[in-house]
Design a binder for these strands. Structure first.
Lengths: 169, 169
DNA sequence: CATGGCATGTAATTTGTTACATGATTTC
DNA sequence: GAAATCATGTAACAAATTACATGCCATG
């Protein structure tokens, strides 16, 4: 369901193509989902068949026509009634944490590397998020980015503590 | 794949039943996954067929026999080689954040309620996590819980900031 | 001239959820 | 007497990933 409302929700702000949606999700909604094209395009087709969105093909030179979707009244209604329902629980899959949990079977070096890699990744993510945050005016949209920043900062702090503990032991 | 290694990993510490695994995941590994029975039992059957685990049935009075699984050498080998590979990226689905992102279509009251509900849930989670943390001795295992605590605390801070912003505006 | 961005999609497979079915025992 | 815990499972369905297929344009 989440991806249905993701698409509907983004289209409720302005008409977009599937490609636009993907880009937007990647830039600003990493904490919501990281839906792939294989999810997004079929969802658009389904929504179109159900008349929750409408599509207009815009020819272009040198590349495939852009298909611009916009939400219909029907879609808007569905979106709004969903918005009023309580949010279902988060779902997460974190391989990194599982490896850490099982790390007793890892050499000290492998363990350190596992953590160091994560450290680098998290720092890079934080950089990106902060830059993204600067480009955003809309307060409501910045909330989600602020969430991500707060989460990334907390993780960084935890990683540093972990590394200190490992260095001592 | 994650659930395969989750099961293998837990069984690598000690033999367990499917029920035990589920319980353990719920208590200590909420940040890794929240796999349901419908995932866990079939995974155990598959692992058994592939001889990555072995099973022994323990009869009980008044309830179904307990099926205790333990990891085989084959399974252990697979687990260890997986442990050494780089961890794949986190996957998340957060309906709550999506609703917040789309909240411009929500009344001020609905918005406040959305946030208040989350606030309550996060506080409750934090409570549980802290209690759980007290019962755990194994340092390695406490790491994952510490991660969850840090994340929950960061979210709480963010929620408070949000609420303040809404009260002002 | 290679990389990345623009732009669409499908098919096969894998993965996971939900709801159902069953039923005794323990705890409040 | 109700609710939670113990304990197993399956079937139908929904959801999502991955890999593949195609091809031009702009930038460095």
């Amino acid at each position: 369901m989440l991806h249905r409302y993701l698409v509907l929700g983004l289209l409720s702000r302005r008409p977009m193509s599937g490609y636009d949606i993907k880009k937007h999700v990647k830039e600003s909604l990493g904490a919501v989902t990281n839906a792939s094209y294989g999810t997004l395009y079929p969802m658009l087709h389904k929504l179109l068949a159900q008349e929750a969105v409408a599509m207009q093909e815009v020819p272009q030179t040198g590349r495939p026509s852009k298909k611009v979707y916009r939400i219909t009244d029907k879609g808007r209604q569905e979106l709004e009634s969903w918005l009023r329902e309580p949010a279902s629980a988060d779902q997460v899959r974190r391989e990194f944490l599982l490896k850490l949990y099982l790390a007793k079977d890892l050499s000290a070096d492998d363990l350190r590397e596992l953590i160091a890699t994560r450290h680098t990744e998290t720092k890079a993510l934080l950089e990106t998020l902060r830059q993204e945050l600067d480009t955003i005016k809309d307060q409501q949209h910045s909330w989600v980015l602020q969430y991500e920043v707060a989460a990334a900062e907390a993780e960084l702090g935890w990683l540093k503590k972990l590394e200190k503990q490992l260095a001592t032991a």
